[in-house]
Design a protein around this nucleic acid. Structure first.
Lengths: 202, 202
DNA sequence: CTCGTTACTGACTCGTTGGTCAGCAATTAT
DNA sequence: ATAATTGCTGACCAACGAGTCAGTAACGAG
């Protein structure tokens, strides 16, 4: 009676494989990652991987989508349901959310999209529709509501939610390129928010 | 008397090849670009390319260095020699410089470093030492001088030259990933500078 | 005009890797 | 138990692209 050499786990495989792929892509990037390496990390043969994903490219897309799922939706919900004042919300939940992003898998996806996005315009569109667009809309909503409530004054800055994203983006890029060099990303993000609030406060 | 099939132009080849490589990398990224494609664009055989650059990787490094050369130095000179007040300098030469960056080859280099930087830590170091470090120092110098002259007040923002870079970085990344979607990068950068100045003005 | 030097060519090699498939063994049905 | 089903394996192949090299022709010297 020897232990079985493998178990059949049809349900869990795809998830496990995309998770393994995310790790591998994070380390080596898409092009430099061998499909066999992904299979190995997932504890699976290369053949099986190809049963679940027709090509390496399809695996790539599945990875991106797996990260995107419902990450922004949580933020949007919080925006709509919060009892906090606009400034309290920005300084509290929003700031804390923003601080988490640079160390999250989102950074990996950004890197992948930067490197390979040109070859997969549909993926860029998908990411735009499901993350960027929604995220910016949520931030814009926060600022607009502040204006409506008389907490903020309407000005160029309240129409540019991108300005909230900018320091987060810089932190992500910095972390990817200069993994070694330190950068106080939290301070960066905080200072930007301080500046913005000081500027738009009514 | 037929026209010669090629001309000997030892002096110009390296430059022409790196220029062709920059174009190709900009379009397809490093990994997806075939060495033969670069040679073709440079109007040269693959064999000749390998006479000037030992490997594809060395070509890559030569490309990065060719873009970096003296791009930041001009800015630094201007900082040191200008007669303008600090605010005038920020609103004038610095703003105009920042607006140009997202459409310049710097964007290509950023993309390459993001995608391949992990495999070439020495390149990332080189880029840090010759561009990032110098650029940030120059911006910091502008802010500090403003403080010294009593034009600005010392605060967190004057110690964070990164905040000036952030919107430029966002514009670069946006342009790479969402080539189609419009983004008013000029407005973004301007608003950030307005905000910063309003905040640190003495 | 020759002849020697060398910038240059392009067909070739060979390692790498995305993708396949015939068969095997874990499960389920009978 | 035995058979039928199918999740799974791993050896295999074909394509592709980085890097090589023997030969060719442009150019300069004498």
């Amino acid at each position: 009676m020897t232990a079985p050499r493998y178990r059949r786990r049809k349900e869990d495989r795809p998830q496990e494989i995309t998770a393994a792929a995310l790790d591998a892509f994070a380390e080596k990037g898409y092009a430099a990652t061998r499909v066999e390496e992904v299979a190995k990390r997932a504890g699976v043969s290369k053949g099986l991987l190809y049963l679940y994903f027709k090509t390496k490219e399809e695996l790539f897309k599945a990875v991106v989508k797996s990260v995107v799922i419902r990450r922004v939706d949580a933020l949007i919900d919080t925006v709509e349901t919060t009892e906090l004042s606009s400034e309290e919300f920005v300084r509290g939940p929003l700031l804390s959310f923003m601080k988490k992003v640079p160390a999250s898998p989102v950074a990996v996806v950004v890197r992948l999209l930067l490197a390979e996005g040109r070859k997969h315009p549909d993926l860029a569109d998908y990411y735009y529709d499901n993350v960027v667009s929604k995220g910016l809309a949520a931030m814009h909503r926060v600022l607009t509501r502040g204006v409506e409530r008389g907490e903020f004054r309407q000005c160029a800055a309240t129409e540019q939610p991108h300005l909230l994203v900018a320091p987060v983006m810089l932190s992500i890029v910095w972390g990817i390129v200069f993994a070694g060099k330190a950068l106080d990303t939290d301070a960066l993000i905080e200072t930007q928010i301080d500046m913005l609030l000081a500027n738009i406060r009514a």
